[in-house]
């Protein structure tokens, strides 16, 4: 499988095969439907119910808006990804967050709670596990490219 992300002037070049566009196109909806899923970290004060509720209340709108914007960026850029597209840094960051969030959600559905799940045979083969491996590969590739773009 060819790497989907590469450094490019002005950001990150993304090039996806048609099957990748189809597969990844399902991710934003999947995440939107899992809006309040406990797979996503939202708690700042796990030992203080009152402070935690206040934190969640203050952040809820911004949290929802930020996630919705990330999903919209992924949907918009996917439409032109088949022929290759250069993502700006904010767009690449949105992709990075969406891929990461999708990994969290699928891992939770698979019941992953301990490290070592990615070793061969550690958990039963399933379409969700295959998707998680694929998203891990995509996510890792994008993080590699973005890491090299941070000024040192």
């Amino acid at each position: 499988m060819t790497e989907s992300f590469a450094p490019s002037a002005g950001g990150v070049r993304m090039e996806l095969a048609e099957w990748q566009v189809t597969l990844l196109g399902k991710i934003p909806n999947m995440l939107a439907e899992a809006r309040d899923d406990p797979s996503f970290p939202t708690s700042a004060y796990p030992d203080d119910e009152h402070a935690d509720a206040e934190f969640r209340r203050l952040m809820a709108a911004e949290w929802a808006q930020a996630r919705s914007l990330d999903r919209a960026i992924v949907e918009r850029t996917l439409k032109v990804a088949g022929g290759g597209v250069v993502l700006s840094m904010p767009e690449a960051d949105a992709w990075m967050r969406v891929l990461g969030e999708a990994r969290l959600l699928i891992a939770a559905r698979l019941g992953i709670e301990e490290p070592g799940w990615d070793r061969d045979g550690a958990i039963e083969e399933s379409p969700d596990l295959a998707l998680l491996h694929y998203l891990s590969w995509m996510h890792g590739g994008l993080v590699d490219v973005l890491s090299d773009l941070i000024p040192t």
Binding site: M96, L104, P115, G116, G140, V143, L146, S147
Partner: peptide
């Protein structure tokens, strides 16, 4: 956590 990639965590801390 067992899911987030190590390189990703490093990237987020840097960024």
């Amino acid at each position: 956590d067992p899911v987030n990639l190590m390189d990703y965590v490093v990237y987020v801390f840097r960024r």
